[in-house]
Nucleic acid binder design. Sequence first.
DNA 1: TGACTTGCCTACCGATCGGTCGGTAGAGTC
DNA 2: GACTCTACCGACCGATCGGTAGGCAAGTCA
Lengths: 204, 204
Amino acid sequence: MKPQQPHATAEKLIDIAETLFAEKGFYGTSIRDLAEGIGIAKSSLLHHFPTKEKLYAAVLGKLAAEMTAEVKAIRTAAGDEEAQIFRFVQLLCDHSEKKPLRVNILMRELLDNPKRAETAKKWFFKAYFKELATIIRSGQLKGLFKPVHPETFILQLLGAHRYLIISLPTVKQVFDPPVYRHILENHRAELETLVKERLLATAT
Amino acid sequence: MKPQQPHATAEKLIDIAETLFAEKGFYGTSIRDLAEGIGIAKSSLLHHFPTKEKLYAAVLGKLAAEMTAEVKAIRTAAGDEEAQIFRFVQLLCDHSEKKPLRVNILMRELLDNPKRAETAKKWFFKAYFKELATIIRSGQLKGLFKPVHPETFILQLLGAHRYLIISLPTVKQVFDPPVYRHILENHRAELETLVKERLLATAT
DNA sequence: TGACTTGCCTACCGATCGGTCGGTAGAGTC
DNA sequence: GACTCTACCGACCGATCGGTAGGCAAGTCA
C-alpha cells in the first residue's frame, strides 16, 4: 500500500470528523460513520486514533490552533486596537459564511466540555480567548475603548455572532424567505455597530 | 396502584428529561437513564411516551409554552416598549441564574433541530420569537427605538446572553476565580447597556 | 535475505441502544 | 361477578455501540 503523504488518512479523518461531529454531536456520531465517510474500515480508524475521544480532541486541537494563530496574526499586524477588533469581527463573519458548521462544533464543545473527562483539564480555546481579551485591555489602556469588562464583552460578542449563525438553518425553514434574507444581510453590519457603540470611545 | 394526580408520572418524566437532555443531549441520554431517574421501569416510560422523540418534544413544548406565556405577559403588562424590553432582559437573566440548564436545551435544540425529523416541521419557539420581534417593531413605530433590524437584533441579544451562560461552566474550571466572578457580576449590566446603546433612541 | 514497521483489513467481543410483547395489580362501571 | 382501563413490570428483540485480536501486503533497513 503506497503511503501517499504521511498522515494523509489522519488528516482526512479529522476533516470528516469535523463535519460529522458538527452536524450530529459527539454521541450522535459513530466511528463507523466516520470510517465509512472516507472509505476505510472502522478498525483502520482506530489505528490512527485509538479512541473516539482522541479523534474528537484532534479536531478541536486543530481548530483551536488555526483560530488562535489567526487572532495572533491580527494582533501583530499593522493597525491599532480599533482596527484589530474590526478585523476580527470581519474574520468571524467571513469564516462563518464559508464554514458555518465550525460554529456548531464550538457550541457543542461548550455544552459537552464540562462532562467529558478527556478534554476537561485543558481547554483548547483558552489561548484564543485570552488573546482577544488582551486586545480589549490594550485598547482600553490607550483610551480607544470604553471601560467594558473585557471577558464579559468578548463572550457577548462571540455569542451575538455564533448564536445567530447556528440559528440560521432553523430560521430558514421556519420563517418566510425575506426574514431569513434580511437577517443574513444585516448581521454583519449590526455586529459592527454593536462593537462601535459598546466598545469604541467616540471622540468627545 | 393509586393514581395520585393524573399524569403525575408524565410530569416527573418531563422534569427529569429536561435535566438529562440539557446535560447530555438527546443522543447522550438513554431512556433507561430517564426511567431510572424517577424509579420506574423503562417500559413504563414508553407507556407514557411511546418514543424518545415524543418525550423530547414534550419537554420542548412545555418549555416553549412557558416562555411564550411570559413574553406575552410582559407585552400586555403596564409600561411602554422600553420598559418591556428591559423587563425581558431582567427575566432572561433571572431565569438563567435559577435554571441555567434550560439554556442548554435551547442551544441543543438549535443545533439538532435541522436533523431531527419529528420536530422539524413546527418550531416550538416561533411564537416566542415573533412576540419579541413585535415588541421591537412597536417601539420603533413610537420612535422609542433605533431602526435596528428586529429579528437580527433579537438573535444577537439572545445570543449575547445565552452563549455567555453556557460558557460559564467552562470559564469556571479554566480561568481564575476572579475572572469567573467578574463575568458573573458584570453580565447583567453589560447586557442592559447593550440594549440601551443599540436599541434606545436616546433623546436628541 | 529476513526482521521490522506501517496501513489496512475481517471477524469478533460484551455492553447498551430504542422499542416490543405478554402479562399483572388495582380501581371504576355495569 | 364480568368487563374495561390505566399504570406498571420483567423478559426479550435486533441493531448498533466503542473497542480488541490477529493477520496480510507492502515498504524500509540491516
